[in-house]
Each structure stands twice: as C-alpha cells, then as structure tokens.
Design a protein around this nucleic acid. Sequence first.
DNA 1: TAGCACATGTAACTCGTTACATGATTTG
DNA 2: CAAATCATGTAACGAGTTACATGTGCTA
Lengths: 196, 196
Amino acid sequence: MATSTLGFALLGLLARKPRTGYDLTQAMRQPIGYFWSASHSQVYPELAKLEAAGYVNHSVIDGPGPRDTKRYTISAAGRHILAEWAAKPAAPATARDEFLLKIYSLWLVEPARARELIRAQRAAHQAQLEHYEQIAREVESEQIDRLRDPTTPEFSSYATLRRGLSFERHARDWCEWLLGALAADPEPARSADSPG
Amino acid sequence: MATSTLGFALLGLLARKPRTGYDLTQAMRQPIGYFWSASHSQVYPELAKLEAAGYVNHSVIDGPGPRDTKRYTISAAGRHILAEWAAKPAAPATARDEFLLKIYSLWLVEPARARELIRAQRAAHQAQLEHYEQIAREVESEQIDRLRDPTTPEFSSYATLRRGLSFERHARDWCEWLLGALAADPEPARSADSPG
DNA sequence: TAGCACATGTAACTCGTTACATGATTTG
DNA sequence: CAAATCATGTAACGAGTTACATGTGCTA
C-alpha cells in the first residue's frame, strides 16, 4: 500500500499542524497549491487511506453539516515515512507545459496575435511575481530567525517561496525576450513597406 | 469532439513534416518531450481520433511487422485548428513539482542528507543546461536566418529552447542558493561549538 | 431570505502509465 | 542467432477533474 504523492502533500501539511479535510483542501489552493494541487474529492478518500495505513489519526470536533467534522493529526509513523520520502530523489518529472506547447506552434499564428498572447502571459508572470514578493516581505520581516534554521518548517516554506520568485522572474524575462524577437518582425517579403 | 492537448502536440509535430506513429512517439521523448510527453499507447488511439475528426490523413507505406505502417499528414483543417488553439491563452496550469513538494518537508530531513539531495538536483539541472547549450550552438550556427523569422518552425523551436536554457539556469542557481542556506547550518542549540 | 463559508462524501469520466501482444528487418 | 530497432495495437489500472449530493451557521 504505497502512499501516493498527494498523500505526502497532505502529510507535509499535517506535519505543521492538525487540520480538517476542508482546511487541507484550502491549503492545496494556496501554500502548497503553488507546486501541487488537488480538489476535495481527492483529499477525503486520500485521508481515509492515510488513516488506514496508520499515518494519520482523526478526532471528531463540533461543526456544521450532516456529517462529523474531523480534525486530522499526523502520527509518528506518518512523520517518519514523510521524512524518508522527502530525503529520496524525486523521479524525473514528466514536463507538461501547455503554454510552451502553444509556443511550439506559434509560427502558424499571425505575429500580431502572437504578441497579444505573450503580453498576457508576461502580465500573468509579473502579477504572480509581485504576489510572491509581497509574501516574501511579510515572512522576512516576521520570521527572520527561523528562516535561517533548516530544521524549521518556516525554512522549507521560504525555500519554496524563493523558488517561486526565481521561476516567475525567469519566465517574465523570457516573455520579454520573445516579445522583442516578435517585434523585430522582419517579414522579408514586405521589407519595402516596413518603417525600420 | 474537442481535441485534447496531446492531439495538439501531435498536430504541432505533423505541421512540420509527415511522420508515422512510431516517429511521433520518439518525438514525444526528445524535442516536444521537454514540455509535453506521451507513450505510444496514447499516441496511436489519439491519431485515430484526429483522423476521424479530419485533422490528419494517412497513407500506407512499406514497413516491417504484422500491421500496416502508416505515414500521417496534417490536413488544412488540422493546420487551422492548431493555429487557432495556439493563439488562445493556455488554461492556468496546475503545477505538479514533486521535488518542490519534498523541499516543503525538507525541514524534517537531517541537513547532511538534505545537502546530498540538493547537490544531485543541481547536477541534474547543470547537465540539462549543458545539453540545451549544445543544441543552441548547433541551431545558432546552422539556422541563423530562419531563427529571426517568427513564421518559421525554427523560430518556434528556438523560442522553446531559450525557455529551457533560462529555466535550467534559474533552477540550478536556486539549488546553489539552497545549498548555501543549508551549509550555514546555524543549529542554535550548538552555537557555543560553532566557528562563527 | 438569499448567498456564502464551512464541511464531507460519492459517481462518472478523462488522461496517463504500465503491461500484454505480435512480428519483420537490421546489426553485431 | 541474439538483440536492438522499427512498427502498431489493446487492456488494466491509477490519478485527477467535474458533477452530484447534503446540510448548518453566519452575514448582508
């Protein structure tokens, strides 16, 4: 009964603090959602599997709705397999970038439309970069000490944040380069009509 | 009968030149494989769907084995939907980076083992970077003219290559930063023993 | 009182991976 | 002659998305 990657994502969250399935689903949008995602329909069955394997436990707390509200806690065994999994090299990821796939066929698109597409993508990267920069300012001012200690969860979170910052910068800059390459727009056949 | 992303990957390859299902499967490892991948068991059924939709045609050519060898060619309709798809913004991709997920739980790993993990990752990025640099040198010396014209397939391929170069550099540099952060290794409890 | 946040589940479907299956041609 | 390459398919399974289903408590 091997734990799935999603299981390790959930354990990674529960290793920081106990949460409900609902909380975990929310967390799969924002902190962890930057590098792994899942919907609630995946989370609840996965929690059941983790509990069957002895990696988490739950206690019933008061809450709304027709069913029990369950707060999940990681077990010692859960913490242990999580640490073991984290220390082993990740399997080479199969890249899936739909945007790059579009770029691969961009030569079929009129340069004007292509520029529109890239501008939108650049804006998206810029916005995400600013979002990360905001978070970075906050954690850097509030948790300076813990960010330096690699045995704190804050260190790990900060490391992933730095990666996000770096990624968005490189992606934005590449869009910038591509816009420049599209703007040059030599179109040899019409060179007599072009202004520059 | 909406064409899947894999379908557009295959059309993107066929828009450059006709190929067999086998050729396409190989291409899903190397040129396109850098940002999209698929195994032959996905490729063959997808080709049948594309043909049913009128986006590709095949002709039987001589070849080995118990079944016909088919060479697929993109149709005018196929070229058209491919260009339309490429011009429209990509749906925000759900990030799935198992390595970053491990980093998120790296605080549970002994710093010595953590450094080992990051060093291996850095080496992988460095190797991939050098591979891309080799390809870049080749295409830059052989196809300088076409690389400047955004209506050539060479331009599109080169744009994705530049993205690969930029990505690997940023990823390697981030590993470098993380190694530095792990090497500092303050371990406050032992501060009396530490040199700094 | 309408809508949203909280809270948990199942079902149907699509996408992707791994394994099963066959067989000719070329190269060592 | 053994192994790799060329070449095409199907089947079983797992992972992920979307839709279905239910119901409370708070706020506008």
